[in-house]
Amino acid sequence: MAHIHLGDGSFTLFWVVFWWIVMVVIVASALAWLRRGPAINNRRLTLAAFCTAAAFAVFQVEIPLFGGVHLNLTPLIGILTGPAIGTLIALIVNILSAAIGHGGWGLIGANTVVNIIEITSAYGIYRVLGSLLQGPFSRAGIATLGALTLGNGAMVAIILISGIQGVTQTAAQILSGLAILVAINLGVAVVEALITGSIVQYIRKVHPEMLPGGEKA
């Protein structure tokens, strides 16, 4: 949901390269972790493939809500696949999105970093809430709201740190403009939280082993 909708040339080359390097380091760490960790079985691979297809399908659709917004299912991906596989899914979805003209190529690094923050924080919040709350719907819903809030914060931080070429606004002016955007995104986060909560609740009923730690229904 948090996605930097700026075209190529908005960030200077330095910041484009910087965010690409940050993204590559995180992706390399995820790959190294996956190689050292338990082997990825066919079931997890299939789940990752379905999550990638679903995230790509949903992410390109503009929904007529609050004037036109996107969902991207990153919290759901985080809860179902975990941060390491989720990181790879975020990278693939961002590359494919740029390939069809949704988002600039230069912003793949920054946008993937934003999505990784959403995926990782959703997974973390969902796991932490496991010892505090029982209901999968509310756990997943709260994790989604928390993750998307952090993702929006990361999006704003990346834009403010990087600056935008050809814009005469001060950082404070850009921040106040982006604050409205974040407020709209928070409203949309509720829709994404309801969807994520419903899907996680359903999965817990029919395939609880798909959830982190193989939760029992």
Partner: peptide, 19 residues
């Protein structure tokens, strides 16, 4: 739309977008 919100927030012209 979301692109228009971004354009307004950053005061970019429509030429700034490659989407």
């Amino acid at each position: 739309g979301i692109e228009e919100r971004f354009t307004r927030a950053t005061s970019q012209g429509s030429d700034g977008s490659s989407e």
